[in-house]
Design a protein around this nucleic acid. Structure first.
Lengths: 192, 192
DNA sequence: GTCTATAGGTGGATAGAC
DNA sequence: GTCTATCCACCTATAGAC
């Protein structure tokens, strides 16, 4: 663990702060100055670790997708049944919302037209990974006679992600996390 | 129609351009300079009609909600049955998306944490109006035995709006309007 | 109503000392 | 790796002439 590595603790701390700012305020809603204030360093110091804001955003997205994928792998490894898996998936969203954050990719999807290209493709990769994982869980559940839904599992997966992302945005605006929970429960109930 | 009225043609043109910019790029993603370029006037001229960006955003939201409410009233007046009403409601979203825009309020809901207070309350008013109208249509449909859904109609309405807003965001990111249409059809099918 | 000119601030980003 | 100092483009907004 060389001290000069860009993956040092400082870079991670920068990413932590930037992640929160981006989930709460959006890519166009925060600046290097915000991060610098929070960490009590100068803006120039941040540019050493992440030369441009575009770099920072892309690296952030990569880490986010990685962490999310790891969480999904852990759910798979837990031996839960499809219904429990979905419950835990929805709980992931709820935990983000509890911190007054949006899903990073939901936020960036809204700002999509203004994003640097490298960030855009990372956003789509995140959604793709979610759909793939969800479609698999849904198909398992359907074959085990636990879930009932029409059409290809991937279509049901897309509707589910859309519902969760939308519910998240609206619940946060109302400052009422309960809204999200009720919609999440409803989406789950519709599958059974 | 006094020529000095702030409701003159110029103000409307400014709102038209600003509306598109805000739906495509978000409140934090456009500036007075963008509007000035599009209309070939100076920024100072814009400030005459809308003193601050906050004013502009609020007035924009008010007009948007008004227009949307008028569209819903027109649907009501058409004598369509509940299912047709919902189809037309979903078609409203689709027409916005076809222009590569987000729902203005979906966009602002994502940026909510950074919005001036007067704009925030307008966003919630928009969602409230949608929920109220939808809940009424859903309840009509349920009593006519055309729709089947569990729980209070307003909860089903919220899930519907969330699904449509989320689908809109994701479809636009993928540049694939068809995604939205399929999710819209699915949401409708789940009610019957 | 629209213009020129400008104020006062913040944005992302770089050079070079330490 | 972090700092000071600085650049320049852009931001919202205003004053005052026409």
């Amino acid at each position: 663990m060389p001290a000069t590595s860009t993956n040092s603790g400082t870079s991670q701390k920068i990413l932590d702060v930037a992640e929160r700012l981006m989930q709460v305020r959006g890519y166009n809603g925060f600046s290097y100055a915000d991060i610098a204030d929070a960490l009590r360093v100068t803006k120039a110091s941040l540019h050493y670790h992440f030369p441009s804001k575009s770099d920072l955003g892309r690296r952030l997205m990569e880490r986010y997708t990685e962490n999310f994928a790891a969480a999904l792998t852990e759910i798979d490894a837990s031996g839960a049944d499809p219904r429990q898996k979905l419950e835990r998936y929805i709980a992931l969203y709820a935990s983000v919302l509890a911190d007054n954050r949006m899903c990073l990719c939901g936020m960036l999807a809204a700002e999509y037209a203004t994003l640097p290209k490298p960030i855009r493709s990372e956003v789509l990769r995140f959604f793709d990974a979610n759909e793939t994982w969800l479609a698999q869980v849904l198909e398992q559940g359907r074959q085990a006679k636990g879930f009932r839904f029409a059409g290809p599992a991937v279509e049901a997966a897309r509707a589910l992600v859309a519902g969760l992302e939308g519910a998240m945005m609206m619940s946060r605006s109302y400052g009422d996390a309960d809204r999200f929970d009720r919609t999440g429960q409803r989406l789950l109930a519709e599958l059974t």
